Computed example of a mutant assay.
Amino acid sequence: MKNAFSLSFCVILLTLTSTFAQKKPIKLGVVGLTHGHVGWILSREAKDDIIMVGIVETNRDLAQRLSNKHGFPMEMVFNSMEEMIAAVKPEAVAGFGNIYDHLAIVEICAPKGIHVMVEKPLAVSLEHAQKMEALAKKHKIHLLTNYETSWYPTNLKAYELLQEGTIGDLRKVIVRDGHKGPKKIGVSAEFLNFLTDPILNGGGAIMDFGCYGANLMTWLQQGKRPNSVTAVTQQLQPENNPKVDDDATIILTYDSAMAILEPSWNWPIGRKDMEIYGLKGAIYADNRHDMRVRISEGYSGFKEEAFKLGERDAPYDEPFSLFASVIRGETTLGSYDPYSLENNMITMEILEAAVQSSKSQRTIQLKN
């Protein structure tokens, strides 16, 4: 009886120990503070999934400003990734600097087995993305890309309805993203500096907001690559964006569908919305929470259902919860999930072709 009790106690103790170990927060390092989206992690409430252990930022003035605003100690701020990794040994890193530096982050982290999440887009070019992918696969790390629209409940609902055949076979998708322009909306000087640099950002609005539509379309099409990419860009605010485009239209053709992406720094009202058209109806994902579904009736008539959606369930409600869950092996991303590397390699192929098309003023054919 005593031995049976001892055995049962040991089993319970091992189970509790295993559970505690599994839920131990992932140690996260933040590389760069110049990206305006860094507030996402700096202002995040303390949870048991991720704990920020170090920051890399050479601009001490910027680091001090954000320290004053968000309350992290300046002792957490290091001058290099090597210094931070040696001091605090992060298990994962989130990149919040310029897009050009994403490759360098993976080059340092991957051989050390440190998982990486970067802000969209994955890279400044397909060449950079391919090097990052090779490193991630070689060293078996997770390499994820964060898009705000990945966490929109309306986009998930639209995807599900499309897969269920609610509006019939897909024929056209229109994705519109952007705002008045980084300078007009008052982003920080550090953020503006790299957003409007063709080297550090890979382009202007075509990269900054074109990536959203390319990412969503790759998800909707479950990894189908477009047959062709055609892009036209303009510079409507040369005084604010002298080195890069600030308005773009990108057309993607598929065997039986088309996508029109409209990334712009010239929208009078900020937006991230999507329209999906099938043979029987249309889905309008108007914003994060509001969505409409119209089913055709006759020539121009339709039956409409409106949705007001709440936030997605954890860990799919924000990037850091899902990052931790994926690292722990608790969550496996769906096929061509917007967050996934397989999706974002195709997204980068689309963006590269769009940039080439806009420069050459011709359609780029993609080999399938």
Rank of each mutant, 00 (worst) to 15 (best):
I350Y: 03
T249W: 12
L143Y: 00
K359T: 06
R271C: 10
T154D: 11
A129Q: 04
I295D: 09
Y159Q: 08
A189L: 15
E342S: 08
N227Y: 10
I185K: 12
G181D: 08
R328Y: 02
K157G: 09
K69C: 12
G298F: 08
I51L: 11
A129E: 03
P111Y: 02
E330I: 12
S358A: 04
A257S: 10
Y284E: 15
M74N: 07
L42S: 01
E119Q: 00
G36S: 06
M84W: 04
S188C: 09
L309H: 05
T166S: 12
A324I: 04
C109Q: 00
N215S: 03
N3A: 14
V30W: 02
R288Q: 10
L103M: 08
N68M: 15
S6P: 15
A257I: 08
E190L: 08
Q163M: 09
I12T: 08
M274Q: 11
G97Y: 01
F191W: 13
E119L: 00
R65S: 13
V124A: 02
Q361N: 13
V106P: 01
F78G: 01
A123K: 00
F307H: 05
K137T: 05
V38Q: 03
K112G: 07
N3T: 13
G298I: 07
K24C: 10
V116S: 00
G178Q: 06
R292A: 15
M345S: 02
A282G: 15
S296D: 15
Q356R: 11
S228Q: 10
N201D: 09
R171L: 13
N193A: 13
L7C: 10
G186P: 12
A205V: 05
N193F: 14
G113Y: 04
G113H: 03
D61M: 15
L28F: 01
T145Q: 02
E190F: 09
I276E: 07
Q221V: 11
Q234F: 11
K131W: 07
E75I: 12
V244C: 10
E190N: 09
G202L: 02
R65H: 11
G32H: 03
G168D: 07
P263Y: 04
N59T: 13
L135H: 04
K308L: 14
G165K: 05
W265N: 08
P263L: 00
E107S: 05
R171M: 11
A214W: 02
W151P: 03
Q163T: 08
P238A: 02
S335I: 13
R328P: 07
D48K: 13
T34H: 05
T166V: 12
G95W: 00
I350A: 05
V53Q: 02
P198I: 01
I260F: 10
E148A: 09
A46G: 13
K183H: 13
L366K: 06
D48Y: 12
A87R: 08
A86N: 09
I283D: 10
F96V: 00
Y100F: 12
E75D: 12
P73A: 03
K24D: 07
Y336D: 04
S340A: 07
K280V: 04
T363N: 08
F323L: 02
L261D: 07
W219Y: 08
F5L: 13
L122C: 01
L200F: 11
T149L: 11
C10E: 15
I108L: 12
E330W: 14
L62F: 10
L42F: 01
H115F: 00
Q361T: 12
L161S: 11
F302M: 15
